[in-house]
Amino acid sequence: MELVVPARAEYLQLVRAIVGATAGLEPSMDPGRVADLRLVVSEAVSNAIKAQASVGVADPILVRCEPSGDRIVVEVADHGPGFDAGSVPDLPPVETAERLDHESGLGVSLMRRLADEAVVESGPNGTVVRLTLGSRGR
């Protein structure tokens, strides 16, 4: 399944619904895992929308979703400026007042936590995030 989505937040709900429904057609897919998939797709597509908006690129976002037996692979590709996934800074500890100064920065760690595999390929012409989720919870 492949979706070409306008890079607008209003389309996030639609992407989640379609990807979730695609995964739900797989008999082996645990319902909790479908919820995880909806969350990581939302994170990846939100990052893609924000990345493109940061440089004024209006290209559509590409979302691929391939169920394959006991796993599902989702790929999200944008034409943003790229980023170094390894250099995403850690947030301050939650016990500190400084933590409240950070409204963003949780998306990549959520994707890594929920996906069995999260691969980020990023360069000056854009980013591709490939997330693999097994059919059973982690």
Binding site: Q13, L39, R99, L100, H102, E103, L106, G107, L110
Partner: peptide, 19 residues
């Protein structure tokens, strides 16, 4: 029905703003 990290971020920001 659904919340992601962007939604959580706004809740964190709401706490900061009110405090």
């Amino acid at each position: 029905d659904f919340i992601d990290s962007t939604g959580l971020g706004v809740v964190v920001g709401a706490l900061r703003r009110l405090r």
